[in-house]
Design a protein around this nucleic acid. Structure first.
Lengths: 413, 413
DNA sequence: ATAACTTATTAATTTTTTTTATTTAGATAT
DNA sequence: ATATCTAAATAAAAAAAATTAATAAGTTAT
């Protein structure tokens, strides 16, 4: 039994509780709890587990030994003494299994490989790709994923799942995507899974980023966290009591399309007055164009011939280079985003609100107007509770989230 | 042991898991699970519990017998046969303990007594009371509660807790009320508890109503439910996965004070442009006054000399009597509330949204404009998921919620 | 009416788990 | 360096719980 490498099917069986009952069921459940606890706490001792899980030391000992035999845990040496005999501590085996995360952006893809210990062992950023709602674009996406898998040196059957982030309406349970690649009767997740041969899960991009940030960012034990994804659109990931909130069909967090303005700007969702029409990357670009057409100048235009080629990254770069026009528009947009965020704080009273997404990388140019609008527009007793932070994980966030959500799905954590 | 009536302290001990471990802990935990399950399912059989809790039949049998001895459960006869020997079914003992719920409204109080089986055995509606932020008003509230307790014929020590609903910011964990009766260093809940001698918990009114509706209304197994309390103000109770959502300090659901309008109307919270300034009972009354002052007529004014004496109930009554002015204003307000609700639906993608509170009793006059605004302003894919219902529990809602939340607190369900 | 079949309950047996006692390993004080 | 203390790990004993078997109490088909 010893040193037997765990394969995909083997691991699924370890945790599946179908058709089991009685002692077998209880042992499986306990093993899952052990893994879960070590997953959160890192290395742990038998005594600690015994207290935490209200189970006797000998029982924990025997389960731990089984888990070691199954290749999921290992003995990582001894803790420093707490006055008596030193305790062995046990941790997850990093190479027990792997997960792939694919973060699909508008103009590129980030893709990564996560091991069992939640380390992102491979991360490829900004692979050129243009997200379009066409079968060709979907085919291209799958080609990129397959190429990535081929590059990996680990045993392929140790890859237990693929998580893919898309923007728009995604039902994570059924695997349907409604905003992109909705060509067939079959759920998109199933189509991709068939093509690649590994269990595949879809997730809304903002939600995945929220989870990545929650697991790997500085969250100081916060359990109720909002993640605002400020990109071309504006998305929201909601964590309640440490768990992602989906809503009935996984459409929660459509923050960008709340009716917030009394304007006549048509949103790409078909409605008017959406928050996104005046507080998003898209509206930033629209305002930038208007200003340029009015005769204003900006360093962002230096390298471009056509104004339609301007991307968010150009404007961010220009702002960082002290370009006045870009800084001004950012402040304008920030004030409106902040008003929207004030609304969220009033409704959720969260411990932490994280600003993420491409636009959040402009730093203070966006953060300061957001912060002052939040103070202005939310109840002070409520907003005093909320820490406002900017994501520090950058492009990693979405990939991490995709991997971690997949990991949870596979193990039903 | 048999027929020993449970007293308050005895019941607390039954469920407290402090300073216990090992087998004792596990048995207590299992007993709690049994009670919990019967609480939700109603009568249950030993076989059913055994499957549900993954515990052997003999073990469940012995625990059930203990619980019967402790006066919490009783044998309620036999189920109809399912093909073989008929199973005994066990249910809660209604009179095992009681809880008091106090729903404090602006101009009256509703108060009730709930038994262990969640039946509201006593309900006194509309006890005259004027909510003012003064020590006298607090004293009067406590006097009413004490009088109510005195009236009850059950053993006083069977009343395990009192729940009190107040509007405004309430921290249910610490027992502080920030909007009303915030006179002392000590939490308000502790002050009342000391005066009355029974464990006391505070709750935000909308949240309590949400919970009352969730437990006793028609919710069709929905787990993510929003309850919009349309009264003088506009509140929101949020249920996520069947549990009340509080936020960091219990200030979640400040829906009435989201920055939603670009107006100059000063809200009682101190800010401008709150949803409440144009979509609430207060704004309804303000608009009504404006119209009357402009020379419009209404049957609601017939019985009143002073326009300042008009209450929400007057306007509701007039609308039900086909008063055109009131109906028009209701439609106007409904449209705005609906726009606010559209926002909630986009963010929460709930299975169910319940309209409650005094104003919801106007029926279609308010519901129809709300419904059409919801369709107009929320994403159709998202709002297709959401059932919109009007509360049918009426004044009971808040009292039920207060009792049930207290019951959960006492038993840490 | 009786046999055959279901399912619940109870009793007996076996297995599992906890508890308690013992041993091991290291820290600290003398 | 040795005795004393603390805490972990292991072993043995005791208790608890799960199985399995047996019985009870019904229904349904013949």
């Amino acid at each position: 039994m010893k040193n037997k490498l765990p394969k995909a099917q083997h691991l699924f069986n370890l945790f599946s509780i179908e058709n089991v009952s009685g002692v077998v069921y209880k042992n499986k459940a306990l093993k899952r709890l052990i893994i879960n606890y070590i997953d959160i706490k890192g290395n742990t001792t038998i005594t600690d587990l015994s207290k935490e899980l209200n189970t006797s030391v000998p029982k924990i000992t025997s389960l731990i030994n089984e888990l070691i035999g199954e290749g999921l845990l290992k003995d990582n040496g001894k803790f420093d003494s707490t006055g008596g005999r030193r305790a062995s501590f046990y941790g997850l085996v990093a190479g027990a299994c792997y997960f792939i995360g694919v973060d699909v952006k508008r103009f590129y893809i980030n893709i990564g490989l996560l091991d069992f210990k939640k380390h992102l062992v491979v991360l490829k950023e900004k692979i050129p790709y243009k997200l379009e709602n066409s079968p060709e674009s979907l085919q291209q996406l799958m080609t990129i994923i397959k190429a990535f898998i081929k590059e990996q040196t680990i045993a392929k059957d140790k890859i237990l799942g693929i998580g893919i982030n898309l923007s728009g309406r995604i039902n994570n349970t059924t695997g349907y995507s409604y905003s992109y690649f909705h060509f067939h009767e079959e759920p998109l997740a199933a189509i991709i899974q068939k093509e690649i041969g590994i269990r595949t899960f879809l997730e809304n991009d903002s939600r995945a980023m929220a989870y990545g940030e929650f697991c790997c960012g500085e969250i100081n034990n916060a359990r109720n966290v909002l993640f605002v994804n400020i990109d071309y659109g504006i998305g929201l990931g909601i964590l309640i009591d440490g768990k992602l909130y989906y809503g009935k069909s996984g459409f929660s967090g459509e923050f960008g399309h709340i009716p917030f303005f009394d304007n006549e700007i048509l949103c790409h969702c078909g409605k008017k007055g959406c928050l996104e029409t005046e507080a998003s990357g898209l509206s930033l670009i629209r305002k930038f164009k208007e200003k340029i057409e009015q005769g204003f100048t900006s360093s962002a235009m230096k390298k471009k011939k056509d104004i339609n080629e301007i991307t968010l990254l150009d404007i961010i770069a220009a702002a960082k280079n002290e370009d006045m026009l870009c800084i001004e528009i950012l402040a304008e947009i920030g004030e409106k985003i902040g008003k929207g965020i004030a609304l969220l704080i009033n409704i959720f009273n969260p411990e932490l609100l994280i600003l993420g997404g491409t636009l959040s990388e402009t730093g203070d140019y966006l953060r300061l107007p957001i912060r002052s609008a939040v103070n202005k527009y939310s109840l002070s007793l409520v907003n005093n509770d909320t820490q406002l932070k900017t994501s520090k994980l950058g492009e990693k966030t979405g990939v991490l989230g995709a991997c971690l959500i997949t990991r949870n799905k596979v193990f039903s954590f």
